[in-house]
Design a protein around this nucleic acid. Structure first.
Lengths: 286, 286
DNA sequence: ATCACTTACGGGTGACGTAAAAATC
DNA sequence: GATTTTTACGTCACCCGTAAGTGAT
């Protein structure tokens, strides 16, 4: 049988055309490469090169061998990739989201239930995450829609109400206890994360006269928010997670509109039921 | 990169299920195989086995790896085959025939022109050899038909006249000088090689009342012929090749029928023109 | 006790690099 | 003289087999 290093040597020579340059490229000495080529001919029992005293080139047989060798090496690399990916998929719970709220909470919950598993998170629009769930790119998604299907498990998972975040001096703070409506603050300028998923569409629609200053980075967003008197958004979920109530520089007031409440569903492929058994029990009992 | 011996080891283990039996099958010690499996896991950075203290089995990742490894080994074997076949095709002139006459003569002529080339000979019916020429299975065919085509070279190559071979006591020997006709010996019983190609059809058609005793092996045919007084066939070509005229136990009389003469054409794919240049010149000058 | 696997250890093959020679440009 | 390839030679890596150890049947 032909060892892989010989195939690599042949492919390198075919690519770089001289023994010296090919040897340099694959970090072996030039005599070593020369010997490897001889050995390959010996194993195959076939002449692969046209040799003159200080020149060596592949003959037709050699070119054929080199192209076949390249295919084998490609396949070997593919094997390594596939095996590593498969293995990592066994040790990873991959989750798709359409809004950032659950994405801040779920990974740590998962981590508590499956301490040896890695968790990967990804946010895309509703349609994309559902497709990727079916593609098995995700093991589960947190959707804003309750999708019933024979091969899917859908469990209600929490809900999230949008809040407005205001400096204490803002006049709308008067609504703190009773809450307010989008129309009450339509026209206000908001600082907002660029990655809020479906929320963006809602606030733009309900407050068409408002301006939204999008910030890509979450850290810089909170920095800007803290040093500015502009309004921004929060939710019951983020307030709880970040203990934001303890921050005296901001007052949070809930929106009362029905559109300000997002109901989430945890959706899992039936075939992943066993893998996520503990998580499913946890969500159902919530 | 993963060396081939590691893939072989993995595939063997997958096949024989225990390290000890697999090791035996591939003629290495069991500890060596154990180490190879560890090394493979190390290279891939992945666990391939479920291990208990004295039992080891492939896990799902391992099964995936084993099946991918098997494909790679298959491809490597295929490479060896293809390269060897290609090389041997470079050193072989492969010729298809539809009759045995030229097959007895051409190889030695070729050999004289191309002393370093091997010659392979094969007899099939007209249709098959033409197809195999186009398939590149043959470099050239000796056909009984003159085929004109854009990608073919067709050169008249010799002709062959059928003779009857008789014991001197046979009454038809009287025709020795003037020749005879098929109808003159219709009804005669002939000893004949089973591999005479298109000749068989001709003699059966022209001498419908004759019986033909077919002999598979050429050597035993000539033995039977020599020890029998039955008629058999020869041709100017075989008489010349075997100096059969010097054999006193047999008289050869030509058939005068036009069907008793076969005109041959040497047909070559244009793309093989260069490879067979010397042969083409030789045939043209004949 | 036997079997199956792993770990430990010493040995030998063979792939490597360095050096040198030969040939071409 | 610089470059390219091959041959020669000594070295070292590493793969192997033997032996020993551990746990399961």
């Amino acid at each position: 049988m032909i060892e892989t290093y010989l195939l690599e040597a042949l492919v390198a020579f075919n690519k770089y055309k001289t023994l010296s340059s090919a040897a340099e490229e694959i970090h072996i000495s030039q005599p070593a490469l020369s010997r490897s080529m001889q050995k390959l001919e010996d194993i195959l029992g076939v002449s692969l090169f046209d040799r003159s005293k200080n020149k060596i080139t592949l003959n037709d047989t050699g070119k054929l061998a080199a192209s076949l060798a390249e295919r084998i090496l490609d396949q070997e690399n593919e094997m390594v990739q596939l095996v590593r990916n498969f293995d990592s998929s066994l040790h990873t719970i991959s989750i798709g989201y359409s809004t950032p709220g659950p994405m801040m909470e779920v990974p740590s919950l998962i981590n508590r239930l499956y301490p040896d598993m890695a968790v990967s998170s990804d946010m895309q629009d509703e349609e994309t995450i559902l497709k990727s769930l079916r593609n098995k790119k995700y093991n589960m998604i947190i959707s804003t829609k309750d999708i019933k299907d024979i091969d899917l498990i859908s469990i209600p998972y929490d809900s999230e109400r949008l809040y407005i975040s205001l400096v204490p001096a803002h006049p709308a703070v008067a609504y703190k206890d009773q809450g307010l409506y989008f129309k009450d603050v339509n026209g206000e300028t908001f600082l907002m994360s660029a990655k809020v998923g479906v929320w963006e569409e809602i606030v733009r629609k309900k407050m068409p006269d408002s301006k939204f200053l999008l910030q890509n980075d979450l850290d810089s967003l909170s920095e800007v928010v803290n040093s500015s008197s502009l309004a921004s958004f929060a939710s019951d979920l983020t307030i709880r997670l970040f203990r934001a109530e303890e921050n005296p520089s901001r007052i949070f007031i809930p929106f009362n509109d029905k559109e300000a409440v997002m109901n989430y569903y945890c959706i899992i492929l039936k075939e992943n039921e066993e893998k996520l058994d503990k998580w499913i029990d946890f969500v159902k009992e919530k």
